[in-house]
Write a protein that binds this DNA or RNA. Structure first.
Lengths: 109, 109
DNA sequence: TCAGTATATGCGAAGATGCTAATATAACGG
DNA sequence: CCGTTATATTAGCATCTTCGCATATACTGA
């Protein structure tokens, strides 16, 4: 695989590599939301959220639609949602494994 | 979802957010490899590859096994491989969309 | 024990990222 | 046109990341 493809993937992962942006995508995975609605749900500075949205826009992970005064955001490709779902699964697997290890330690103590 | 979970996911994505580390994982997805083999396949500085491996180790994305002189690495959870496969699919979808746009521009020119 | 091979780690420079505060742009109602 | 609301952008600072270089550690065979 050419390095440019890997760079592309790395860029997408980089865009996902922030808790706030993950939160934004999780909210958006349930449907379109205005920037203001996101700001309220996240409870963060307006400028900060706007910057995170800019990152997601730059990588074309989200698209926006202007409606009068407001800007509505949505996830462009549902595959991104699947990636997040897989990560959830991954997290659970890791958690179970950790618990299993703790269990074993408990028994062999 | 609590923020700690999002932080966890973000940390994993951060670990994936580098072309070299993606290359490493792609090589490892075909099976266990020694650090030396990876260095050769990647054609990069030994110390650099070792640092990237350290990042992947820290997030427990890869595990290592010592065998005499060498250290063999492998992917701990195949879910990570699935995430990479999904990203490949995502890339193709994006590519197709871009080509489609170019096509349209061509026709309406 | 010593030389050689394989791998990891520490350090400093250069660049990227994320935050806050301030400011800019755009659309609306009056 | 004016003030207000919604959103984006800029600037400055602190922190993190990545790299190359040097060095450390660990194992092997003589």
């Amino acid at each position: 695989m050419p390095d440019s493809l890997r760079q592309f993937k790395a860029d997408i992962f980089q865009a996902l590599a922030h808790p706030t942006r993950i939160a934004i995508l999780e909210f958006l995975s349930e449907g379109e939301l205005s920037a203001g609605a996101l700001i309220e749900k996240l409870g963060m500075e307006q400028a900060n959220v706007s910057q995170h949205l800019a990152v997601l826009r730059a990588k074309q992970i989200v698209v926006n639609r202007k409606a009068g005064n407001q800007v509505f955001y949505s996830i462009r490709d549902p595959t991104i949602g699947k990636v997040l779902a897989l990560m959830r699964k991954y997290f659970h697997a890791q958690l179970k494994e950790t618990i299993g290890m703790l269990d074993e330690m408990e028994h062999t103590r």
